[in-house]
């Protein structure tokens, strides 16, 4: 078990190191995110919608689209020189790779969300009063983890297919329950309403737990070669 956790740690930190080294890719993802946020909130301004209510939707649409870029990158690195083969041979259990990658992607998405959120907050002109900070943090953290878990699982497949652009169409249908739940959570957090929030908190937890545990069984088949 110690070896298992140690290997997750080793792969996780190597992933982050590589991410930092290729920071331009992350930065272009951030620019893409800010641009998406800008365009959407601007578009809503043009149609005279109360922009303070659209924040949760725009936030999560942006994170969902950006997540595709992040997760795709993480496995592309492994396949570049087939390093993944040496890695798999060194790891006893293939799920190590899943958890390390999902954690790395989670970290990236979380940082991304923390950058995007204030920008969106300003664009949408939302009042800070009455915000339930705990719920907001919860939805950002748990939402990013769910995204990272599902995304990691699916990219591990698509990266093995020749020039395949399948990731978004595989990923988004699976993410719809999470999407509904985190948008609701964020909305309730901003409105400062606690009534009904607990149900969504449970729902996101169940979703995340499910998609964190399924790979324990199924990831083996994805990387069978």
């Amino acid at each position: 078990m110690n070896g298992y956790l140690r290997n997750i740690k080793v792969v996780y930190f190597r992933d982050l190191k590589q991410e930092l080294r290729g920071l331009d890719e992350f930065l272009s993802m951030v620019v893409f995110g800010v641009m998406l946020v800008f365009i959407t909130s601007f578009a809503f301004q043009l149609t005279d919608v109360d922009t303070s209510r659209i924040l949760p939707a725009v936030l999560w649409v942006t994170i969902f689209f950006a997540s595709e870029l992040a997760v795709q990158r993480s496995f592309a690195r492994e396949k570049e020189r087939n390093a993944i083969d040496a890695l798999l041979m060194a790891l006893g259990d293939k799920s190590v790779l899943f958890y390390a990658k999902a954690l790395a992607n989670f970290t990236i998405l979380l940082v991304f969300g923390v950058i995007i959120l204030p920008v969106l907050w300003i664009f949408c002109d939302v009042s800070l009063r009455g915000v339930n900070l705990w719920l907001l943090v919860f939805s950002l953290v748990w939402g990013s983890w769910g995204l990272a878990a599902v995304g990691t699982m699916l990219t591990a497949m698509t990266v093995q297919l020749p020039n395949s652009r399948l990731l978004p169409i595989l990923m988004f249908p699976l993410l719809i329950p999470l999407f509904i739940a985190v948008v609701r959570c964020t909305d309730l957090a901003i409105l400062g309403v606690t009534e009904g929030a607990l149900g969504w908190v449970y729902f996101v937890s169940v979703y995340d737990l499910l998609f964190s545990l399924l790979p324990l069984i199924l990831f083996e088949f994805v990387l069978e070669g």
Partner: peptide, 22 residues
């Protein structure tokens, strides 16, 4: 592709009740 589709078929099925309840 057959193997991946099988994995996806399982996950997608599990996802159906989640979609419904959400």
């Amino acid at each position: 592709r057959r193997r991946f589709a099988a994995v996806y078929g399982i996950i997608a099925f599990i996802n159906v009740p989640l979609v419904f309840f959400s």
